[in-house]
Design a protein around this nucleic acid. Sequence first.
RNA 1: UGGUCUAUGGUGUAACUGGCAACACGUCUGAUUUUGGUUCAGAAGAGUCUAGGUUCGAGCCCUAGUAGACCAACCA
Length: 677
Amino acid sequence: MKEAPESLNFLEQIIEEDLAAGLSQDKLRFRFPPEPNGYLHIGHAASICLNFGLGERYNAPVNLRFDDTNPAKEEQEYVDAIKRDIQWLGFKWASECYSSDYFQQLYDWAIHLIKNDKAYVDGQSAEVQAEQKGTPTTPGVESPHRNQSVDENLDLFERMKKGEFEPGSYVLRAKIDMTSSNMLMRDPILYRIVNKPHHRTGDEWCIYPLYDWAHGESDYIEQVSHSLCTLEFKMHRELYDWFLDQLHDPSLLRPKQREFARRNLSYTIMSKRKLLQLVQENVVSGWDDPRMPTISGHRRRGYTPESIRKFSDVAGISKRDNITDVSLLEFCIREDLNKKATRVMGVLNPVKLVITNYPNGKVEMLAMENNPEEENSGTHEVPFSRELYIEREDFKEEAGSKYFRLTLGKEVRLKSAYIIKGESVVKDENGNILEIHCTADLDSRSGSGTEASQRRVKGTLHWVSIQHAIKAEVREYDRLFLDEAPDSHEDKTFMDFINPNSLNVVKEAYLEPFLADARMEDKFQFQRLGYFTLDKDSIEGKLVFNKTVGLRDSWAKQAPKPAQTQNPAKPNTQNQGHRNPLNEIQKISKKYTNLSGDKLSAARENILKLAEGVSYEDLEPLFNTAAKKVGTRIGVTLALGVLLSKGQERNEAINSFLQEASEDGNELLSSEAKAIL
RNA sequence: UGGUCUAUGGUGUAACUGGCAACACGUCUGAUUUUGGUUCAGAAGAGUCUAGGUUCGAGCCCUAGUAGACCAACCA
């Protein structure tokens, strides 16, 4: 068998190259390095799946490392939540590491830098130092402390460590290059003083390393071969390498930082800081609110680990900015749940249905398939009786032929039960429907094998027996934001796009009694409605269900849209400049010579129409289009014809362009040119 | 106005050392269906940001543009 022509992402290609260049595969090692200052979200899931996926692919260890160098923001709660989420996704880390475990080593290395005259203690204020740093376009100036003696630096750093100074009074800086075009190389800070207890080291330290000093060195200590991070750290690579240059022992592996684009999802945000704001301002109920893009939010909502891993896998990894449509995530969870979820019935917006020819007091237990997607999933029993609830939207007194549901005089099947026909309605004085009366074809019971049971009717409805139904709360969710990219607007913040209707609580839904025994980990499909799972707010006798995601609904698409699902104004990240008519013409023209017949004349018409919006000033530069780009020249010729007919004066440029075109070997071009010459 | 990175259907990714742009989602048909679900069959949709160049041949190479992202926290 030939190997499948598998395509590698660019990071896998880099690793393959390193392997080919002599890196031994058993040296491969990865890490996932979250800062414990918030909960993990779906973007982190991409990074987790990437790193742990590489670990699985190359049979290499993957460390979980908490980047805990800022005691002001970090908490044990977050450490615990992060571990829980990674485990839930199904990954096992080789070692649980903490940057804080390396504080002593980092300190020793800092001393080493000072002794080599590569670092110095600066006692200027943050403002002054910022001033001296310059801007991306102007070089910085050196600190007056830059050339202090090694001994003085050693002494000051020692006293920083001992806690003799106030926060902000002194920092340790690397001595690199205040004129570098990379701002991070302008004598970056290695240590600052923070008088806050650390969640692991307590009061042991009062100086803390900054990210750049801690991260690469931690990678080095752990002998991580490939340190993968998001694109915003690209600039840090130069510093990462500089630090390693100062202390790398050639007998040890030297870590390599590479960057990939973070995963963005449409209609949500992926910033821990902003998610924290949603939590703190009570826009959501917490980090695990089912509307949150966090892993814990998705879990609570009913997503499976498999679906999130599938999503990360199918979305892939690259270096370009992206906004992945949520529909891809929704596809992944539906695909998984379709195979797993137990089919049940529940009515969220009930209206009473009376089967007038069904005996009062009679109860039948009907068999209902647990999962038609799975052979041996079995059945469970659903009680059927004279009085039922069905969804209000499933009945109309009269409707067009495209409406497959219950109307007066038309037949539909009650799922797993009988075929019924609408007969009459009972209304209150305001015209609201109180009851629907129907008759059942009593021979048509599902599975009875009778001829009537085989009859086909257009629609099938779900239902519950009123007398047997259990009541439960059902929470339905919509996207949290109304904008596709809520945090990418210059004039507005993400808070301006909060969807006021993102949560819909159905206080009293009616569910089949089977659901009374539901457990937290169960996944259900409420037939025709969507996938649901128990929420943690459930208590004995008062269940709460979360709607994970609806079923695909090709009926709803035809009907008028319920809400703001579409957002016509595309913020689109990258403007490729196809907007103006001239660009359109160029685009059409390119393939002009490949066209024939109707398509050709349509393209010609199109160009002529678009040419109405083109100015001569814009068109003229295209006169010197390369000779072999015949299509483009035809387009230009056609557009020029339109301009001339509108009164554009002929000039030398026009005449020589047309002359040349009319003599061209391509007939299409020459004839168009001759026509207007 | 400095530096770095990126640019392929509506979206996300492919295309190995150049060889007539592929896959998934989404969209639209049709069939199947006791879920307007699923499944199956099919269709439409880009000629690869622009212009020039090298080449028999360019999404891949070269040049010049354009657009977007990132960089001046004692955050990570």
